[in-house]
Design a protein around this nucleic acid. Structure first.
Lengths: 358, 358
DNA sequence: TTGTATGCGTTATCAT
DNA sequence: ATGATAACGCATACAA
């Protein structure tokens, strides 16, 4: 190891390539002003009780007058901890994902961790790109909505030993840690409810199933439940489309205009779609629930305000975010948190569903 | 400057404090494998055309087999560019802010900049904390919703020479660069519309004005317009509350139950509130717009689906986000973009407003 | 076109 | 309890 043969520190620190032209001061400035070493300044912020009260005070005062705070890049490099976590969601346009982000962000912020957000726009390729970008940023943990992603995505997470959780959707047999609810079970419950009311002929208006395991699970939940009762959805009564009232309206119109037997119940992928069905039913003079039962999902405020009030299910997505953050924080702390966490979708029985006509 | 008296590089690189136990490789590994210097590897990714095709290929191949990508902290430190931008919004629960985030994120991502999100929860103190955290992260640019923030927030941004924009709200005389729409003008337009229909007695149901300059501007726009016509809102017809249908419903009930003259028009702070008013009017048997005119803001899909369809205004908040990102990117590029950008709220005349009764 | 050497701001390992 | 100094991973003047 080279012993000091030439004046190192003193000479070096003045040789900085492009001496800071901005007002930004650095740790060594604080050290100089406080008359202590850089190590001590660092300690004041990272291991406060290892430094005497009087020195600590001097350092804090110096930092304050110089308006200094630690540079995150420097910290990250030296400590190999970035204090960054990431989350990949399909879109911010859907409040179920937005509130999950809020929940995570709040929980992480309380521990000094910055949450970086990536939207995949329901595109697995974009999700992969975003994860790679986050890996480059040195994320310490990741949350990913759903497990319908390229294997490379999870491979990368494992390769770089980044703890992660699959959120929103929960599946018992998943190879990943899941924090969310069981889409299959939730839609099975809805279907059972309708079957219990005597319905035998169903239509389904739901989001695109492509690249979307949550929606696929929902459809599977419906089909499995029907099948158990010897029933099935007729192909012409399966509709896939956007999460809008418009999609719901168009679907119902199509169903009602078609020749042949009409369904007595429509299961929708969310409240927006269901609200559209309700609206179109009003237009077409279809009695709800007399002639037709309708179910939604998410429990928007409108669901309980509209007449008839919408039967739907509620999921606490903010809580899912919070739980996911907690799981990841525990993992980072070296605890061995339980593998995953199932949250339950709560059935909200209201007045858009009733006994099947005749 | 110390000439090399002892074997520096070679000796040093093997003395690393805690030699990487993870599978993560670093730039020098790539250099070694490719048989080039670290500078060359760096160039391949930062100034690709300064390196010969054949060398570039070798480096890229080495990087691929080692599964390497540049470490963001290292880059940030060495280049004094973090490639991070930040945005502070009140909440993700409101889609006008969520979509602004989407717009910014997309625009920044296209330029390799990661957007970090902070939610203030409508609390100026939290906003300041978040900004400080982002400064520590070395954000290169910032967007802040509204200018109703502690002066220290903007002082800090200026002190650290971080270009920023105030978004969502636009005010001509603002000292800041604003990208958004004029809340005052928008609500003046709504008010003019109603006055033009012969209305003389108004109620206002709007979000809390405290710490919220957008809402304050809206109220001011209403008051100024009324005043110009010798009118005013009676104190008992001013309601402040949450952005929910419930608030709208309660407000209308209160108004209708009170003794004294009833307003013929209700101006609401957004569509949720207006939808609640519409809903309660239905309950109370109030004819819309015969007895009462109602206006909203934001133009949710429901606004055009409900009967009577809601008169409201529409703002392209995704575009605001995109424009803000563009402005900030231009500033970072050293261009001198125009100071701010006004987006216009578009009036949507529908059927919840009509001539004043009698 | 490529390589050498050094600094970016912080933390951590020593030694004192 | 405090100080000196070598990493951390990369970028960039400068030299070749």
């Amino acid at each position: 190891m080279p012993d000091s043969l030439d004046p190192p520190a003193a000479a070096r620190t003045t040789t900085n390539r492009a001496r800071r032209s901005t007002g930004r001061s650095v740790l060594s400035d604080v050290a100089k002003l406080a008359g202590v070493s850089t190590a001590t300044v660092s300690r004041v912020y990272n291991e406060p009780d290892k430094v005497s009260a009087n020195v600590r005070e001097r350092v804090e005062h110096a930092a304050l007058t110089l308006n200094w705070f630690p540079n995150a890049a420097g910290r990250a490099l030296a400590s190999t901890r970035s204090h960054i976590a990431g989350i990949i969601i399909p879109t911010l346009d859907d409040r179920v994902f937005a509130s999950q982000v809020s929940g995570m962000q709040a929980a992480f912020a309380a521990r000094g961790i910055t949450l970086v957000l990536g939207c995949s726009n329901y595109d697995p390729a974009q999700a992969l790109t975003q994860v790679r970008a986050m890996l480059a940023r040195g994320v310490e943990a990741m949350a990913v909505v759903s497990e319908a992603h390229p294997p490379e995505l999870f491979d990368a997470l494992r390769l770089y030993r980044v703890p992660y959780a699959v959120t929103y959707a929960y599946r018992k047999d998943s190879p990943h840690t899941c924090i969310g609810f069981d889409n299959h079970a939730a839609y099975a419950e809805i279907t059972e409810h309708l079957i219990g009311l005597g319905h035998r002929s169903f239509a389904v208006c739901i989001q695109p199933t492509r690249d979307n395991d949550r929606v696929q699970a929902r459809v599977a939940g419906i089909r499995a439940t029907l099948e158990r009762h010897g029933l099935a959805v007729r192909p012409e009564h399966m509709f896939e489309g956007e999460s809008t009232m418009g999609f719901g309206r168009r679907s119902l119109r199509t169903i009602w205009q078609a020749p042949g037997e009409r369904p007595t119940a429509i299961i929708c992928g969310n409240d927006h779609i269901a609200l559209g069905v309700l609206r179109e039913a009003e237009e077409l003079g279809i009695a709800i629930p007399g002639e037709l039962s309708v179910t939604g999902f998410d429990d928007l405020e409108m669901a309980q305000e509209i007449r008839p009030a919408l039967t739907t299910m509620r999921v606490d997505t903010y809580e899912i975010g919070r739980l996911a953050a907690q799981y990841l924080l525990d993992t980072l702390d070296g605890k061995r948190p339980q593998h995953g966490h199932e949250v339950h979708a709560l059935f909200q029985l209201r007045h858009s569903t009733g006994p099947a006509a005749r």
